[in-house]
């Protein structure tokens, strides 16, 4: 009653029934899409096998091996379909590796399992290449296990950190490059120096104006600083060449630093030691201009690196 042929027929009926059900009720499901894709990719070869099968069935009536040939082409077609469904799985899901989304590339090893099954099934019927198919199938199996394990583990995808510009050696830079870098540090972007107001907490334009006429209540407007710096140096309160006479909370930028001699040095000193000289009227309230509200720019929280402080316009 339960002969091999009957059972084969039953199995085939179940498989075809399942495929039909999927296509009829769930035409847009992943499985249906997969089969469509497989058909797209593999129909020419499949057609050849079907033609062969028909030829064996009807064109070789007298061949004693007719039954076997037809059966082998059916089995071949089955293996071929499996092969292309597996390939379609690769084609559809290869690049999709969003972690956490089920059923995507993590199911690629299923393809390897299908190759394995196809190889071993074919090996049962195609005796000539049996060993090759079995070895191949076994290798597919080993690879499927390992790849499956790799996909079963939790997945992390690591993005590179945002491209960080390496602080180049400023001494190698042209004047224009240095100025651009400075503008970027102060205003956030090259060409942004024309706008009024702060770009963020702790940034220079929060207190200083940088253009003529810009509001600059908390700290002096820095427009024209290169020429004005020379005037500051002559201010008796600056006490050039003798820092010990300064009436401020901090007299020198560093012990033995002395005072500035040129405009550039003055600007540098102001960055490192805002307290050394406070422009009249801009001191901390009640300190009688002995103490500056500005933080030293090379210390936290500003913490510009030594190189960065030198890029000012």
């Amino acid at each position: 009653m339960f002969t091999g042929k009957v059972l084969g027929g039953v199995t085939a009926a179940i498989i075809f029934g399942a495929i039909g059900t999927i296509f009829y009720f769930l035409p847009e499901s992943g499985a249906a899409q997969l089969m469509r894709k497989a058909f797209h990719l593999g129909w020419p070869g499949g057609l050849v096998i079907v033609i062969l099968m028909l030829y064996f069935q009807f064109g070789r009536k007298n061949d004693p091996r007719q039954g076997e040939l037809v059966f082998k082409s059916v089995i071949g077609l089955l293996g071929y379909s499996m092969l292309f469904i597996a390939i379609a799985n690769y084609a559809m899901n290869f690049n999709d590796e969003s972690p956490g989304v089920p059923g995507e590339p993590r199911f690629l090893p299923v393809s390897l399992v299908m190759f394995t099954v196809a190889c071993f099934t074919m090996a049962m019927y195609f005796k000539g290449v049996r060993v090759l198919l079995q070895i191949g199938g076994f290798m597919f199996f080993v690879a499927a296990c390992l790849a499956g394990f790799g996909n079963w583990l939790p997945q992390v995808k690591a993005d590179p950190p945002p491209a960080e510009e390496k602080t180049a050696d400023v001494r190698q830079m042209s004047v224009q490059e240095r100025a651009d870098l400075g503008e970027k540090i102060i205003f956030g972007a090259v060409g942004a120096s024309g706008t009024q107001g702060a770009i963020g907490k702790g940034q220079c334009p929060l207190c200083h104006g940088f253009q003529k006429g810009f509001l600059s209540e908390r700290a002096p407007n820095l427009f024209g600083i290169p020429t004005r710096a020379l005037e500051r140096l002559k201010d008796p309160r600056y006490s050039q060449a003798d820092p010990s006479k300064r009436d401020t909370v901090q007299k020198e930028a560093c012990p033995g630093c002395g005072t500035a001699q040129t405009a550039a040095e003055y600007i540098a000193e102001s960055h490192a030691c805002p307290n050394c000289y406070v422009v009249a009227g801009f001191g901390v309230k009640g300190s009688n201009d002995r103490e500056s509200p500005m933080p030293a720019s090379h210390k936290p929280p500003i913490a510009l690196t030594e190189l960065r402080r030198t890029h000012r316009r």
Binding site: F2, L7, I14
Partner: peptide, 10 residues
């Protein structure tokens, strides 16, 4: 055999 062959696909 019959039962398993039918059940396996399911």
């Amino acid at each position: 055999r019959a039962v398993s062959v039918v059940l396996l696909p399911f």
